[in-house]
C-alpha cells in the first residue's frame, strides 16, 4: 500500500519536527543544539531498539529527520560491530552514512562557490 507509506511518512516526519519546534519555542534551544540533540537521540534510540520499528512504519518519515541520521549511524555501528568486531564498531557508522556526508560536503562547497548570500527583507 504505497499511499499508506506516504501517510505515515507525513505524520511521523511531521511529528518529529513538532518535537523540535516545541524544544525551540519552549526552551529556546538554538537550531544548532537541536540538530546535535536529535542526531544523538537517534543513535541512542536505535541502540535501545526503539527506532527500528518507527523506520519500518514510516520509512522516510523516520529516516529524513536528523534522528534518522542518528539511526543510520547507530545501526551501521552495531552491524559493523557484529560482523567485524571492534574495527566494525569504528567503521560501521561512517560507512553507513558516507553517502549523505559526502553529498553534503560536495554540494555544500559547490553551492558556496556558485551563489552569494542575499540580504533579508
Amino acid at each position: 500500500m504505497e499511499w499508506m507509506d506516504f501517510f505515515w511518512a507525513f505524520v511521523i516526519g511531521g511529528a518529529i519536527c513538532v518535537v523540535g519546534q516545541l524544544l525551540i519555542s519552549l526552551t529556546r534551544l538554538t537550531p544548532a543544539r537541536i540538530l546535535v540533540l536529535f542526531v544523538t537521540v537517534g543513535v541512542v534510540l536505535t541502540a535501545l531498539g526503539l527506532y527500528e520499528p518507527l523506520v519500518e512504519l514510516a520509512g522516510a518519515g523516520a529516516t529524513v529527520p536528523l534522528t534518522g541520521f542518528g539511526y543510520a549511524l547507530g545501526k551501521g555501528a552495531m552491524e559493523g560491530a557484529m560482523e567485524k568486531g571492534i574495527l566494525g564498531a569504528f567503521t560501521g557508522g561512517i560507512t553507513a552514512t558516507a553517502g549523505g556526508v559526502a553529498a553534503a560536503i560536495l554540494f555544500g562547497y559547490l553551492n558556496a562557490v556558485i551563489f552569494t548570500p542575499k540580504t533579508k527583507k
Partner: peptide, 20 residues
C-alpha cells in the same frame, strides 16, 4: 550594517530559522 552584524553576532543569512 545588518549583514555584518548578523554574521558576527548571530547566524549566516541563508540559514533557515525563526526570529524570536
Amino acid at each position: 550594517h545588518f549583514c555584518t552584524a548578523e554574521r558576527q553576532y548571530r547566524f549566516p543569512l541563508e540559514m533557515g530559522g525563526q526570529t524570536t
